[in-house]
């Protein structure tokens, strides 16, 4: 793998492309610059690791790519769609069809069981009936939680909740998966299992994965490429094995 920001074959168009991407927050008098001009290209099928200290803007970058937040400057294009040009409705459809998101704090609906959480997501995807139930159960089985289908998030361990969140993000087999520290609360064995799952998914479906992690060793082992962020900017890239 080349060690520049834009690897792979030059002719291949990147599936994710950000240009001078910036996001700042106005808090009272002061302006916080969470991102200050990020240029990032991700090729289809990459498993990109994003590392960096806390507060360096990793989550912000992921949210912008996922169409959950709008940049204050610059642009993002995913799978040929310039997100800034999308209407509210088109942006919803983009989130629904193109990306899967694993949030840093999972965001499961606390009042719904693990299974119901997945079923609700499928409902929003437009999947109903017996096939919805089956898909949801299969997804839980893949993350090793088939037995805990009827338990609510509060009755699951943090790591188990995280796996439900991963299962939910992969339900509709999106071309792009954005994962914000999916292994943060897992022991090394479970973390490795989850990474195997993601890698398997990527291999099978050619899913492009952008994953934020603090675990350098994990990134070394699984990511095809790793970028580092500091103070809202991309630092020099690190090579993957």
């Amino acid at each position: 793998m080349p060690s520049e920001d834009s690897p792979a074959a030059p002719g291949d168009p990147p599936i994710i492309r950000t240009r001078r991407l910036a996001r700042s927050y106005q808090v009272g008098e002061s302006t916080i610059h969470a991102l200050r001009g990020v240029d990032l290209d991700v090729q289809p099928g990459e498993l990109l690791g994003v590392v960096g200290v806390s507060g360096s803007g990793k989550s912000t970058l992921l949210h912008l790519i996922g169409g959950l937040d709008a940049p204050t400057a610059g642009e993002v294009a995913v799978a040929g769609q310039a997100l800034g040009a999308l209407s509210r409705r088109a942006r919803s459809l983009y989130r629904r069809q193109t990306v899967g998101f694993v949030f840093q704090s999972f965001y499961l609906v606390p009042t719904l069981s693990a299974l119901a959480n997945l079923k609700m997501a499928l409902t929003l995807q437009g999947v109903y009936g017996a096939c919805r139930e089956q898909l949801a159960r299969e997804a839980l089985g893949r993350v090793g939680l088939a037995e805990r289908a009827d338990h609510r998030p509060g009755q699951l361990s943090v790591g188990q909740q995280q796996r439900v969140a991963v299962a939910r993000a992969l339900l509709h087999e999106p071309p792009v998966l954005l994962a914000d520290e999916p292994t943060a609360n897992l022991d090394s064995t479970t973390a490795a299992e989850l990474m195997d799952l993601l890698a398997d998914f990527r291999e099978r479906l050619g899913t492009t994965i952008v994953m934020v992690t603090h675990d350098a060793a994990l990134a070394q082992r699984y990511c095809t490429r790793t970028v580092a962020m500091s103070d809202g900017q991309l630092a020099g890239a690190e090579a993957a094995p």
């Binding site: 409705r89 459809l93 989130r95 069809q97 609906v109």
Partner: peptide
């Protein structure tokens, strides 16, 4: 509120 935000993040439109 958070639940609504989540549904939107998962692709629910304003109309949904």
């Amino acid at each position: 509120y958070e639940e609504i935000g989540l549904y939107k993040a998962l692709g629910a439109t304003d109309g949904d």
